[in-house]
């Protein structure tokens, strides 16, 4: 897949300083992030999820009562850069650790940050039991269908056909088994009140996912039980593709199987057909908006 490069016109503008007479509407990084610098690969999707859940916490006014529990993966490097009290857990164990934190600090907003290898491979039992207990915490899954940190190995969410270092010809159901659709599974659990699967492969998806985070944290603040936000994230390194191809690859492979949308709201499960219809409508809207923007550029 090759991405067609836009061809902007006109001179290169000075973007080293704030433009005079303009008002700032979005900051370079969230207030709850100590630094934007990190050692993630170019084109990685994980920092995008980081930005929006930190912004969501801040915007909901929950910043001074939030405690995070991080698993082990590439995103572990954010443990030191999030300006949020944090417990560094072991691979797979974050939901149990979060349970202990929440039970001793019921007034706190407690979230976990885990990848698919951490949550769906190593710690499947912990996430499912935590959901079933209706533990009033928010678990965040950064799902890229691959062990990024070890260098691109198959996880329990790797989709059929996906090439990894231990599924060289692509994941083959007969040999490697089928991927787990963890969000769909959790949506079926009674203790789960809010379950959503977002993505960060384009700006619209990022904005939608940020709303999902807000709903999840709100549901925790209202003591509604377990909430879960899965975010499909780009891992061009572990997918062995050019960085710029990440968003399209995500859309065409991961998102085909791990269908985006709100899987459960207020205890009501939404089925895959509903989500697919919704996603198609959103994609059409985005294309129309882009065409409007292009036309508007010269329509002074």
């Amino acid at each position: 897949m090759t991405v067609t490069q836009p061809q902007p016109v006109g001179p290169v503008l000075d973007t080293s300083v704030a433009p005079p007479g303009a008002k700032k509407i979005a900051d370079i990084k969230p207030d709850l992030l100590l630094t934007g610098e990190h050692h993630m690969c170019p084109g990685c999707g994980e920092p995008l999820a980081l930005r929006i859940y930190l912004e969501a916490i801040q915007e909901l006014g929950l910043a001074q009562r939030t405690i995070g529990v991080a698993g082990i993966g590439c995103y572990t490097s954010f443990s030191g850069t999030m300006d949020v009290d944090l417990v560094q857990a072991l691979h797979g164990r974050a939901p149990s650790v979060a349970t202990g934190v929440k039970r001793m600090k019921p007034e706190a907003i407690v979230f976990t940050l885990q990848g698919d290898g951490d949550m769906v491979n190593e710690g499947l039992q912990e996430i499912l039991h935590t959901a079933a207990r209706g533990e009033n915490v928010t678990c965040i899954l950064l799902n890229n269908g691959v062990f990024g940190e070890t260098g691109g190995h198959m996880t329990a969410t790797t989709v059929i056909g996906q090439r990894t270092k231990n599924s060289l010809e692509g994941r083959d159901a007969e040999y490697h088994g089928y991927p787990m659709l963890i969000g769909d599974l959790i949506a079926q659990i009674q203790g789960a009140s809010y379950v959503a699967r977002g993505s960060v492969h384009n700006a619209g998806a990022v904005a939608r996912t940020k709303r999902m985070f807000k709903r999840a944290f709100e549901s925790q603040a209202n003591n509604e039980g377990f909430s879960f936000v899965e975010v499909l994230t780009m891992c061009p390194t572990g997918w062995f593709i050019p960085t710029g191809d990440g968003p399209d690859y995500l859309q065409d492979t991961l998102a085909e199987i791990h269908v985006m949308g709100e899987l459960k709201v207020d205890g009501v499960v939404h089925n895959t057909e509903q989500l697919v219809a919704e996603n198609t409508r959103k994609a059409e809207e985005a294309a129309a908006a882009k065409a409007r923007d292009l036309a508007d550029k010269t329509g002074a």
């Binding site: 405690i67 529990v69 417990v87 857990a89 072991l90 164990r93 939901p95 149990s96 650790v97 979060a98 349970t99 202990g100 934190v101 929440k102 039970r103 001793m104 600090k105 912990e126």
Partner: peptide, 9 residues
Amino acid sequence: GMAWGALST
């Protein structure tokens, strides 16, 4: 794991 979390508080 739960004890770990409780201790952290």
